[in-house]
């Protein structure tokens, strides 16, 4: 049976979520030999405004490239969560930033609230790597592409000279999700 895995990454324009989508899609399609598409929807602002990036991963052709039945959704702002927090499938996962999303949606899905933005500042001293921390969380919770593939895609996509801090940010995200899974044994992936 062909599988189709849908990821929606939402937040504010400028948070780097389109890059996260590109890394995920590239990891799946270029390094893991699967098929993937990455699409985006954003407003005319260069920064701010609600933005979303969607990744579809499959082992077969991907006709409709937009998410409709989401396996995992990331929301880094309340506005994005309110605007794009729908279409999550039953038993799907919503990852929210614990600081910025104080009013998570309710429904038949698991809400994973983690200090993504805070960890970027406190653990790595750089607010801008929050997107890659989120990538680590999504990777650990979705378990859909190999860790090696994601790391290769990070190296090829992030600006030269920032590989190490981004790989550290990725690991921070993986650690946050690992800890969450330890505390919620029912949700082992």
């Amino acid at each position: 049976m062909a599988f189709r895995y849908e990821i929606r990454l939402s937040g504010a324009g400028g948070q780097g979520l389109i890059l996260v989508g590109k890394v995920l899609a590239e990891a799946a399609a270029i390094y893991d030999g699967l098929n993937a598409t990455q699409s985006q929807s954003y407003g005319p602002e260069a920064r701010g405004g609600a933005s979303r990036s969607e990744v579809i991963i499959s082992d077969t052709d991907i006709d409709y490239p937009k998410a409709e039945n989401i396996d995992i959704l990331l929301a880094l702002t309340q506005e994005a969560c309110d605007k794009y927090g729908s279409d999550v499938k039953p038993d799907g996962i919503i990852v929210i930033d614990s600081q910025t999303v104080t009013n998570p949606p309710a429904g038949n899905f698991t809400v994973v609230s983690l200090p993504i933005l805070q960890s970027a500042v406190e653990r790595l001293g750089k607010f801008v790597v929050a997107n890659i921390i989120a990538l680590g969380v999504i990777h650990k919770l979705s378990n859909i592409v190999s860790e090696e593939a994601i790391k290769s895609a990070i190296r090829s996509r992030v600006p030269k000279g920032t590989e190490e801090i981004n790989l550290k940010a990725f690991q921070t995200g993986v650690d946050l999700a690992t800890e969450w899974l330890k505390n919620h044994p029912d949700h082992a992936t």
């Binding site: 989508g21 590109k22 899609a25 590239e26 399609a29 270029i30 098929n35 993937a36 598409t37 990455q38 699409s39 985006q40 991907i62 490239p65």
Partner: peptide, 9 residues
């Protein structure tokens, strides 16, 4: 816009 901004294999 969709095809133009779609990243695809």
């Amino acid at each position: 816009e969709i095809i133009a901004h779609l990243n695809e294999k």
